[in-house]
């Protein structure tokens, strides 16, 4: 990645999530979970762009150790609010925001591109499952993808990794990356990186991959982050049609 994100100073302890009281409810995620990686030394500061009120207002409660600095219904609102919000580590953005195309406010991959041009680290948080759409966002510079069906723990992990400069692929996009690699289109992957990728594509958790390959969990995660960056590079130079052709799929197969 060539984009250098704004390097924020220690963010102020503000935002709804800092109260922390409700996040542990139901054990959905949170700091008490031993298997989740400990967040970095500082709390990541997040901006949320989503047309869903529940997501905008609920995320701060679901992610008690994340500071939600601002919430916006669309990119225009985000751009208006962000100068006053303080340093943001990660912009969490939904892909399909209702009724925006008509108003000329970019969404989807165009929104991702604009966020990247402005220097933000962008994490897609979406219900979108069509692989080509997701791959397109990676090509535009998104740092990661998390589906809304995934656990809040997975979301929290992803925010932490992206805030630390890493990349996060959703399981389905990991599968796509594995397929592309298996047909020899990611030649810069090392054998180790390929092994980690294959494991992830099969849903294997980092802990087990690390045990199997006699490496630390952190090393496995770093391998995967590198793989994701290389895959994003591949996507920037290959059209959706290239992708389908190289995988031997029918046109439109990746849009299902």
């Amino acid at each position: 990645m060539t984009t250098v994100p704004r390097d924020p100073p220690e963010p102020p302890q503000r935002g709804m999530g800092s109260a922390g009281g409700m996040g542990g409810a139901g054990g959905a995620g949170g700091p008490e979970d031993e298997s989740a990686p400990r967040p970095g030394p500082r709390r990541p500061a997040v901006a949320v762009i989503d047309d869903d009120t529940v997501i905008r207002e609920g995320l701060a409660l679901l992610l008690p150790d994340v500071d939600v600095l601002l919430t916006a219904r669309h990119l225009g609102e985000f751009e208006a609010l962000v100068p006053r919000a303080g340093p943001v580590d990660v912009v969490l953005v939904d892909l399909s925001l209702t009724g925006l195309e008509a108003d000329g406010v970019p969404q989807g991959r165009r929104a991702v591109r604009r966020l990247r041009e402005q220097g933000w680290r962008c994490l897609i948080y979406t219900g979108e499952r069509r692989l080509l759409v997701l791959a397109g966002c990676l090509a535009e510079g998104a740092r990661g993808i998390v589906h809304k069906t995934e656990s809040t723990r997975a979301l929290r992990d992803a925010i932490g990794k992206v805030a630390d400069g890493g990349f996060v692929l959703s399981p389905a996009v990991t599968g796509l990356a594995d397929a592309v690699s298996q047909i020899g289109r990611l030649p810069t992957l090392t054998e180790r990186q390929q092994q980690v990728l294959s494991g992830r594509a099969r849903g294997e958790p980092f802990r087990e991959i690390a045990e199997r390959l006699y490496i630390t969990r952190k090393t496995a995660e770093e391998h995967m982050s590198t793989v994701a960056a290389k895959f994003a590079d591949y996507l920037r130079t290959h059209s959706p049609a290239d992708l389908e052709r190289e995988l031997g799929l029918a046109p439109g197969d990746l849009m299902r």
């Binding site: 656990s151 997975a154 399981p171 298996q182 099969r202 849903g203």
Partner: peptide, 23 residues
């Protein structure tokens, strides 16, 4: 489970490998 992953791959000569994994 939060995530269920189905992975399948065809192998040489008409073989296959499938894995079903949940967390």
């Amino acid at each position: 489970a939060d995530t269920v992953t189905l992975h399948a791959q065809s192998t040489e000569g008409g073989g296959w490998e499938i894995s079903v994994r949940d967390d």
